[in-house]
């Protein structure tokens, strides 16, 4: 293959070249993702089964806890596991992707320091792992919902939309974190705390209905995870969950704004990664 292209290396690369180059390296998204997926379950006994077990076990734990302690499941017309599973699956996807993205540059420092390719591929390819778990989690959900005799409606196709939106929201936060984490490893320490706090302010264990009318509601819906989980429940649970515009619009706005800002931020700093890593 002969490429007669001239590459110009300066302190500030041009905008069009930047995206062209990402397109040239498009195969790398999948290759890096495949690497993460292949490596993940090496030397484990259960292997890929872990992807099934994780959402299942966490959901069962949540259902058990919720039934024992709180009154969150009161008033639910369908088995509560069907309410909790979409929340858990999406929350796992959200938290895992955020953690992976934030740490992605640092964990791949051997690549960053030694070979050139558009750096933004690293954080964006790190979410495939979470996506795989998401898909497997959905299969688990459908298993339960068929078992209880509930069948999804046509609007189930919107699952894809909410998966994408929640991913974009994650990337919006995660890209910032991944850049900052290169210089300040504190971020990597901080993210798990933010995530465990975030689980309580997101409707994972309960439904958004419980918050409606409370004085914090207007603040509550600004959390992008709320919009994503509400949307996923709406898509999966048929008539038992209604569409919540209050949380959907903030989600869209959040995705657009945070992604635009964070990609800009990433571009500004990606050339200096190797100097700090």
């Amino acid at each position: 293959m002969k490429s007669e292209k001239v590459r110009v290396i300066t302190a500030r690369p041009s905008f069009i070249d930047y995206w062209k180059e990402i397109f040239d390296y498009r195969e790398l998204f999948w290759i890096l993702a495949k690497r993460d997926i292949m490596v993940r379950y090496k030397q484990t006994i259960f292997g890929v089964l872990w992807s099934v077990l994780r959402p299942l076990i966490s959901s069962l734990v949540y259902v058990f806890g919720v039934n024992r302690i709180g009154n969150l499941s009161e008033g639910s017309e369908i088995p509560y596991i069907l309410v909790i599973l979409p929340g858990t699956i999406l929350w796992l996807f959200f938290s895992q992707s955020l953690l992976n993205i934030s740490l992605s540059i640092v964990t791949n420092n051997n690549l960053v320091a030694k070979v050139f390719f558009p750096r933004i591929i690293i954080p964006f390819s790190s979410f495939f792992l979470g996506l795989l778990d998401f898909v497997i989690g959905l299969i688990v959900f459908f298993g339960f919902s068929f078992y209880y005799g509930y069948f999804p409606e046509l609007k189930v196709v919107f699952v894809i939309v909410f998966a994408i939106l929640s991913y974009l929201a994650t990337a919006g936060i995660g890209l910032f974190a991944s850049v900052l984490n290169v210089k300040y490893r504190d971020i990597g320490q901080l993210i798990p705390f933010i995530l465990s706090f975030g689980m309580f302010i997101s409707p994972v264990l309960y439904t958004t209905d419980k918050v409606v009318g409370h004085w914090t509601y207007n603040l509550y819906v600004l959390n992008p995870a709320v919009g994503a989980i509400d949307g996923l429940r709406w898509a999966l649970l048929g008539d038992y969950a209604s569409f919540n515009w209050d949380s959907f619009i903030p989600l869209i706005v959040f995705c657009v704004v945070s992604l635009a800002l964070s990609i800009r931020f990433f571009r500004k700093h990606e050339n200096s990664f190797v100097d700090y890593i």
């Binding site: 290396i9 300066t10 050139f116 190797v274």
Partner: peptide
């Protein structure tokens, strides 16, 4: 610099 690992 040449291999574009870091920018000038």
């Amino acid at each position: 610099l040449l291999s574009r690992i870091t920018a000038p």
